[in-house]
Amino acid sequence: MTRTSSITPSVVRVAMRNKPYTFGHDWRTQTELHSMLLPGVFFIIVFHFIPLFGLLMAFKNYDPTTGIQGIFTSAWNNFQNFTWIFHSYQFWPMIRNTLGINFLGMLVGFPVTIGFALLLNEIVSMKFRSVIQTVTYMPHFLSWVIYGGLVINLLDPQSGVVNYLLLHMHIVRKPVEFLADPQYFWPLAVITGLLKDIGWGAILYLAAIAGVDQTLYEAAAIDGAGRFRRMWYVTLPSILPTVMIMIIFAISGMLNNNFSQIYVLQNSLNLSTSQVIDTYVYQVGLQQFQFAQATAIGLMKSVLALILLIGANFASKKLTESGLF
């Protein structure tokens, strides 16, 4: 076909209207499209679907020396891997740490992040506002290795700034072992997580706030509502659907910890409060080579996470009539 100037978009659209079902359905176009999709589907099958067969290990007496065939040939073991997990002395502490860190994180993270977004929205000078945003987004893009390393250095009992200040302001009498003392790990994980991602987490809320109907504020102002009341009675209810969706996400992720964060801050001394499901899978599976048990823990986690997601979505639909699906 040669290029003809007479074919304009409108002509094409008229032509389309007459023959809506055949456009692009020619053999050549379809072959081209499907061959574009083929490598991606191949990747999904190899890297997402084939590992699903590995889940069989969770129900079997799998011996890592038997390789891939062993997954299929080893004997079923009547949920012994699961009873092994439940009887492990690390099991309940690990569940408590996973849920505790995440729950504490939500309890602190949501009000503080939303509060930050609301306060940021009240900053009048646009220039100052964008400076704050630029600064607070930055840590999100740095790795947990770097951020965690900074935290470890700042909290060091001998050379850290935090302990120096605490000592010289006579708040404590001897240096606090923030990383070696298990009682500090949960707050440490929550506060560092919050400081690293507060700015980033506020983006969605800021976008939601920007979408609030301005006439609502005018009406509230005429009714005599001050700045604080407008925030409380207009802005907050308007962004509630966004908040609900974020809460659903957070609840469905209750069993997921940020592996890269926890692993950096973890050490042998604080393990009693820092061992979470994800780090436990790594330890049992790749350090102790108990593949079957590690797979069983992972599978259990995925199933529970799915139940949590469906449950949270259901609750949200009942309460606020907005949900994910």
């Binding site: 190899v46 679907f49 899978v281 599976g285 590690a294 797979t295």
Partner: peptide
């Protein structure tokens, strides 16, 4: 399906 289901760490390691 690929977004919501996966084998997890150990099956991926074996693959």
């Amino acid at each position: 399906i690929s977004m919501y289901f996966g084998g997890g760490l150990i099956p991926t390691f074996m693959l």
